[in-house]
């Protein structure tokens, strides 16, 4: 239906797949922060190289990731040109009517694009190599200290995994209801905006009714199967922190150190 690579899981064997979801989550979190340290060519090249290495290690084909990036190309281009046209500083490179392009703006725009790109690639890599179940398990585990201050961490993780599980079911249902109402003469694709808004009611009401019915059924089934919250619960999935996870943390620390060094030394 949608050509989105983001959010899809590709089950495969690779060193990145085998990493503990916690170390992957921490790495992505750290990465998103340290990306903002990069304000030089050297630093940006380091970031790109890091991503490239990550993709290679994950054994996911580069074209596959590029195909996914195509869908957000518009956003990237938009940010690029917005920055290009509306920042200033440095030598004036080009002047066309009201458009003035300065050297600094050009460099900054390129950096911003690289920043967005690497953040997206790294988060995509996380979801491509980690099953939704692992991600929720990892999150729950990482956030578990917050349980002490009565934050419903377990419930939140369960909610997340159930909604992920029901996405395909609800998509199928939506398609069916669209078809059923279209067969009764409802028109979702043409006519005035007002008519289209009106046509959405016969779609949304049944969808909500069915979602509530499912929620009710599911709650009952969960209770029948002995679900009573987090207390006394054991886990099938055991998160094991291996040496490779520690190595991953070291790599992230090194990456941060390099970026800091590059930044303070002010080179390039």
């Amino acid at each position: 239906m949608f050509n989105l690579v983001i959010g899809q899981y590709v089950p495969m064997e690779s060193r990145v797949h085998r990493l503990d979801p916690r170390s992957k989550l921490i790495s992505v979190f750290l990465f998103v922060i340290i990306v903002f340290l990069a304000n030089s060519w050297l630093a940006n090249i380091v970031l790109l190289l890091f991503c490239y290495a990550g993709i290679l290690e994950s054994r996911i084909s580069l074209p596959f990731i590029f195909r996914g990036l195509r869908s957000i190309l518009v956003i990237i281009l938009f940010t690029f040109f917005l920055n290009l046209f509306f920042s200033s500083g440095g030598r004036l490179l080009l002047s066309l009517g009201w458009i003035h392009i300065y050297q600094n703006a050009l460099i900054q725009s390129v950096f911003i694009v690289i920043r967005i790109l690497v953040i997206i690639v790294v988060t995509t890599l996380l979801t491509l190599t980690t099953s939704p179940m692992e991600i929720t398990d990892g999150m729950e585990n990482l956030l578990s200290p917050f349980k002490k201050i009565k934050l419903p961490v377990h419930e939140f993780a369960l909610m997340m995994s159930i909604s992920l599980r029901f996405i395909p079911t609800l998509l199928e249902e939506t398609e069916k209801i669209i078809k059923a109402q279209a067969a009764r003469g409802s028109d979702f694709t043409s006519g005035s905006l007002k008519n289209r808004m009106k046509a959405i009611v016969p779609l949304l009401v049944p969808l909500f009714v069915s979602a509530f019915k499912r929620a009710e059924d599911l709650a009952m089934a969960m209770e029948a199967r002995g679900y009573h919250g987090d207390t006394g619960r054991t886990r099938l999935h055991k998160l094991v922190w291996n040496r490779r996870d520690t190595v991953m943390m070291m790599i992230m620390a090194l990456l941060a150190a390099i970026l800091i060094l590059v930044r303070v030394s002010g080179c390039w």
Binding site: E173, K176, I177, R184, P202, V205, P206, V209, S210
Partner: peptide
């Protein structure tokens, strides 16, 4: 199939 799901 299950046409009652289209009622609104």
């Amino acid at each position: 199939q299950y046409p009652e799901h289209q009622l609104f």
